[in-house]
């Protein structure tokens, strides 16, 4: 599903954000990406959706090398990847329904399909009752669920999450994790960057640790720190 080989990103200011990272994520896996601030987690996720291009090395999504894509191909790549963020990135003037539908409208999906898909994902995240409410009237957890619904509405094969629980209290964080676990169970591959030790330790999923741009650990069913 996701392959990186000697993946390196050096920013124009000379910062080496990723240093020869090699890893493979299989279809259906749930992977935590951990590491201290500045380790390169966000940089890695940004390379996967081609918000940035790698300095060297290879990166492939779904068996397609994405290091050299035309703009149009980048747009198509992004349609097969869902992304959720710490700050949700919802449009404040649009309702929950409209925020989710937006993701399909701007890729010119058919109107009928849009309605059906939006209600399906809103039901999945438990927000059917708040479809016509503005984001400002929602709690943080609910806003994150809208963001999640939007990332799923186009049936992505791969879901990337960059600190999705960063702004949430522990209980609400677990609600989101339960949803992610459910989505993963239904077949979506998930890569989640996080600082949340408790969650990583309890979920017992594969953990990949970065430090100063280097891959320092890759343990199946691991914890946040290397266990003795």
């Amino acid at each position: 599903m996701l392959i990186a080989k000697d993946l390196t990103k050096i920013f124009s200011n000379g910062v080496v954000a990723l240093d020869q990272v090699s890893l493979t994520v299989q279809k259906g896996e749930f992977v935590f990406l951990v590491g201290p601030s500045g380790a390169g987690k966000s940089t890695f996720l940004n390379l996967v959706i081609r918000r940035d291009n790698p300095t060297s090395g290879l990166i492939a999504v779904n068996q397609q090398n994405i290091a050299f894509l035309k703009k149009k191909e980048i747009a198509l790549l992004r349609r097969s990847i869902g992304v959720i963020f710490q700050d949700y990135k919802l449009l404040p003037q649009k309702t929950v329904y409209e925020n989710v539908a937006f993701a399909l409208e701007v890729i010119e999906a058919r109107t009928r399909a849009i309605k059906e898909r939006v209600y399906t994902v809103l039901e999945l995240v438990g927000l059917l009752g708040k479809a016509h409410v503005l984001p400002s009237e929602l709690s943080g957890g609910e806003q994150q669920r809208v963001c999640l619904a939007r990332s799923l509405v186009n049936k992505p094969l791969l879901l990337l999450a960059d600190e999705p629980t960063g702004n949430l209290d522990p209980d609400t964080s677990w609600e989101i994790m339960e949803l992610l676990r459910e989505i993963n169970r239904r077949g979506t591959t998930i890569v989640m960057a996080t600082h949340n030790r408790e969650i990583v330790d309890q979920m017992r999923k594969r953990v990949i640790a970065l430090d100063h741009g280097k891959l320092v650990r890759d343990t199946p069913k691991g914890g946040y720190h290397l266990e003795a």
């Binding site: 959706i49 703009k71 149009k72 747009a75 992004r78 349609r79 990135k89 449009l91 701007v106 186009n154």
Partner: peptide
């Protein structure tokens, strides 16, 4: 700008934006 950022992230083409 925020709308544009989201459009790009969900795979809208440049010309659409």
């Amino acid at each position: 700008r925020k709308e544009v950022e989201i459009m790009k992230l969900v795979g809208a083409t440049d010309s659409f934006v």
